[in-house]
Every structure is written in structure tokens, then in C-alpha cells.
Amino acid sequence: MPDNPGPALQFTGSAKIAGTRIFDKLNLPIAAGKWTCLLGPSGVGKTTILRLLAGLGDHIEHDGRISADDHQMIAGRISLMAQTDNLMPWLDVHDNIVIGSRLRGDEIQSAKAEVLIEQVGLTPHRHKKPNALSGGQRQRVALARTLMEGRPIVLLDEPFSALDSKIRAEMQELAARLFAGKTVCLITHDPGEAARLGDVIFVMNMNGLQSVEPPSSPVIRDYDAPDVLLCQGQLLRLLRDVP
């Protein structure tokens, strides 16, 4: 069970970086306690949205608002997992997972960390440093670090895109299980990933957002289920057809 159930979020507005328009009048609802997948070509502004949600938009001119349905601040309730694992090469698995507490000067919850290390299947590797781990193992550490924060909102910026197909499928399943109940916003290039994981799916292009009906079966779906394959095909067509 999640530490905190996630709120619904609403992102609206337009954004510019150094005077260049990134997107106009966008309205993105992010469903409470579910996976919202944002799919689209590079350069369309997906990461800009994520950075604004994460509070990392100092260099972005955002004209609009970001709100939660419980009317509380979003800052401090978010954790972030990116394509690069951002593990500290000088810390072992355990210490990387508890880095958040260290950086805030909080007490280290080693018992919780140990449970998470076990959940992501890294118990035999807990004293290893990132250089001694494979790409998949490193993303598992990043996943555990994200969970360790216990935040109700999770922002995922193509976290599995650098992994091979087998490991990627495993990571999707692990993430779906461990992030259950949290409000997740996943940015991805992979239609198959969106079709497996999305409770809500949006395709973003130069013209704005387009909502796509997700497969009716619950998350996480089999990659070869007919409705998943159909949705994947539909998403790919949308990505290809729109300029």
C-alpha cells in the first residue's frame, strides 16, 4: 500500500524558454492515484511540463497554473525518476536509496530501505556501488530511491527507455506494482509502454494534447494482449500521422 494516496493534478497554461514558445494553452489533467502517460515526439515540451510539475522550471516562463484537487501545495509531495539514474557513484546501493534523508538532514530509515532493497530484488547487491551494477540494476536502485521518499506524486521521465526489452518489461511490472495508489505521470516515447501502463493516455504534438482511450483491462497489462496491441498500434499511428 502507498504511504499516501496521490491527489489529482491539473496542469494548464503555456510555456516559453528564453523567449521561444514551447507550447500554448495546454490543459493536462493528471488522474488521482493512477498512471497518466504522456506520449509524443521529441521537442514537443513533455519534459518541460514535467520540470514545471517538479518545481525545476526556474528557466521556464510558465503562464498558467498547477494545482492539486486537495488544494495543498505540490512542492514536497513529488518524487522524480529520470532516464539517467542519477545515482551517486561514490555511494553503495543502500546509501543511494537513503540519499534524500541525508540531503534533508533527516534520520536515516535503514529498516525501510532494507525492505525496499528486497522488494526491488537487490539484497545480494546492497553493498555494491553503481559502477558494479548493470543498467537494469541501477534503475532498480533509482526506483527504490523514488519509493523511499514516500511521496504521493511520482514523475517519471522516460525512466526505462535506455533498458533492453526484457529488463524494460520487468521494470514496468515492478514499477506498476510498487507505485500502486500513487499519482504517476509517465513521459515516454514508447507506445507499447503507454499501452501497458496508462490508465489515462495523452499524445502530445505541436497542436496540443489528444486523449486516447486506454485498453479496458487493468494496469499492468500483458504486452501481447489484443487490446494492448491495438492501443499500441493506434498510438503509433497518431505519432506518425501528426506533423
Binding site: G55, L56, I78, L80, R104
Partner: peptide, 8 residues
Amino acid sequence: DLAKVMQA
């Protein structure tokens, strides 16, 4: 970025 999101 990670540290900022973690409110370090």
C-alpha cells in the same frame, strides 16, 4: 535536480 525535488 534530484536534490532540489528532495528539498535538500
